[in-house]
Design a protein around this nucleic acid. Structure first.
Lengths: 176, 176
DNA sequence: ACGAGACCTGACGTTGACGTCAACATCCGT
DNA sequence: ACGGATGTTGACGTCAACGTCAGGTCTCGT
């Protein structure tokens, strides 16, 4: 099983086997109830299959798994799925593109978590941040383009509707 | 071949075999150069297969066909294809939904063409127009919802970018 | 009139994002 | 401790929107 691949794709595991730090301690405590895959799917309005599929693609890793190998989803996981659906329906991205976006967001979060961690060099952090910002701005540009196009669309619709309404008004009062 | 079905779906042919009118005379003259499917596809950046497929679904009917049965596309046809792509990529509609939207737009155009045609009753026209306006407003609502969501998305992105930039600025001038 | 492209109609293949089913494993309330 | 609900991993099916190929037809410039 390509376990290493998943780690690489998600890229939010510590690079080496170094000791537990404050960052880990913050991530460990239960920040909410964990749900089984059935409950999670129902709450999200998606299928269990979809959740497994997202994990298979490396988009999602359940907050924990039982010793028997069952998935347990945290509220943060649910939020992540909601974001996946948003990126799908709103922007029309496919799951590979969504993986890129999420990977990027994860990196920024990671950087902010290690804000006061002196083990990573400032230069390294700056470099990472720059890369992330560039990527986010790329996404921003495409989103803004989409919004602009949507505005044009709305204007078009409005004029159509306006013409229709004008016609109806004119018909209601022929010469008056 | 379900030729009648296509006519029904598109619904912009004259209901009965009545004589040629001014409306037909306006539609008949060549309003631009007709393109073969290859040229049309290339100009639009879509495949020939896609054009045939759109026709098969009743989304598109080439302005004319040669006696040998080859498709000839008018500029209006090209515009229609562009609209199809727009509805696909921008709104994420599937081709069935797009058929509904286009059918509706066709009806409004038809009504405007028969503006001075006294054969259709005013009441009938009003009824049709009302239906169309209702449908367009439905579409408008979904489009506006999408735009609102996109705005939220943009705001989110901006805050992420802002935080990243703030980090970089702080790093560049540590204590100064 | 003719030949090189351009085009036609089936028919089957492909891809992404899951749905579905089988056969087995795990969890948890009593 | 146990049994019914819940979950697991393959493996194959599906659906939309085309891609691709074969085998034959049409068009149009020379």
């Amino acid at each position: 099983m390509p376990e290493g691949l998943l780690l690489l794709v998600l890229g939010h595991r510590r690079p080496m086997g170094d000791p537990v730090t404050a960052a880990d301690a913050e991530r460990a405590p239960d920040d909410g109830p964990l749900l089984g895959i059935g409950a999670a799917a129902q709450r999200l309005g998606v299928s269990e299959r979809a959740l497994r599929y997202y994990q298979q693609l490396g988009l999602l890793v359940p907050a924990s798994t039982t010793p028997g190998g069952q998935r347990r989803f945290s509220p943060a996981d649910l939020a992540r799925v909601e974001r996946i659906r948003e990126l799908q329906t709103l922007l029309g991205l496919n799951l590979d593109e969504i993986a890129v976006v999420l990977r990027n967001e994860d990196r920024m979060a990671e950087i902010r978590l290690s804000w006061h961690d002196e083990r990573t060099s400032a230069e390294e952090r700056r470099q990472l941040t720059r890369e992330c910002v560039v990527l986010q701005e790329g996404l921003r540009a495409t989103v803004e383009a989409k919004r602009t196009a949507l505005d044009g669309f709305l204007a078009d619709l409005d004029s159509r509707i306006g013409r229709g309404r004008a016609f109806l008004a004119e018909q209601d009062e022929p010469v008056r």
